[in-house]
């Protein structure tokens, strides 16, 4: 019974290594909560993309979750800038939300995942937040968005909220 009438959370994590992203991916899969879906996308130093996601997410048509992309955030060298700005990695563009197939995931990610970087997106019931969120320990930046509603619309809303928080640096 996907996307019941309750609050849906989407967590986005940004990583500088695929190792770290996969560690968190495995951690959320094994945290005990039922997930709507999870996807981890990484790009190695040769530029090759790897996408891994939970099967049930695709089956349930939550393709929107899996098709977001990532861009890197801003590093402003404190040596050179008047104000030291903390590292922000993983701000999500969300420009490819409407893609629904695996190949489209890769296409979108290819544009946005930096070489050597990785991203994780997890969707779950808000009621499970206390179980899921502590499992994500290695993201160098993360944000959680939420939205009320059903199905893909709720997912997109939560995703957009998370993206907004990341972009604003509140993640």
């Amino acid at each position: 019974m996907p996307f019941d009438a309750e609050v849906t959370d989407v967590l986005i994590g940004g990583y500088m290594s695929s190792t770290a992203a996969h560690e968190d991916y495995e951690a959320v899969l094994n945290c005990g909560a039922r997930l709507w879906g999870a996807v981890v996308v990484s790009r190695d130093l040769d530029g090759t993309l790897t996408v891994e996601h939970t099967d049930h997410m695709v089956e349930e048509g939550a393709g929107g979750l899996a098709s977001v992309g990532f861009v890197v955030g801003l590093f402003a060298p404190p040596l050179l800038a008047a104000t030291a700005i903390g590292a922000a990695l993983g701000a999500v563009t969300g420009k490819a939300l409407h893609q629904r197939t695996g190949s489209k995931i890769e296409e979108a990610a290819a544009e946005t995942i930096p070489i050597g970087g990785a991203g994780l997106i997890v969707a779950y019931k808000h009621a499970d937040a206390a179980t899921v969120e502590p499992a994500v320990t290695r993201a160098v930046q993360k944000a959680v968005g939420e939205a009320e509603g059903h199905h893909v619309d709720a997912l997109r809303g939560a995703l957009a909220d998370a993206q907004k928080k990341l972009t604003e640096g509140s993640g």
């Binding site: 500088m16 190792t19 060298p77 404190p78 040596l79 590292a87």
Partner: peptide, 15 residues
């Protein structure tokens, strides 16, 4: 002048 936390440094080492 690139500020990196120890977690970031670790992940870059993993990369």
């Amino acid at each position: 002048g690139i500020p990196l936390t120890d977690e970031m440094q670790l992940q870059l080492a993993e990369r």
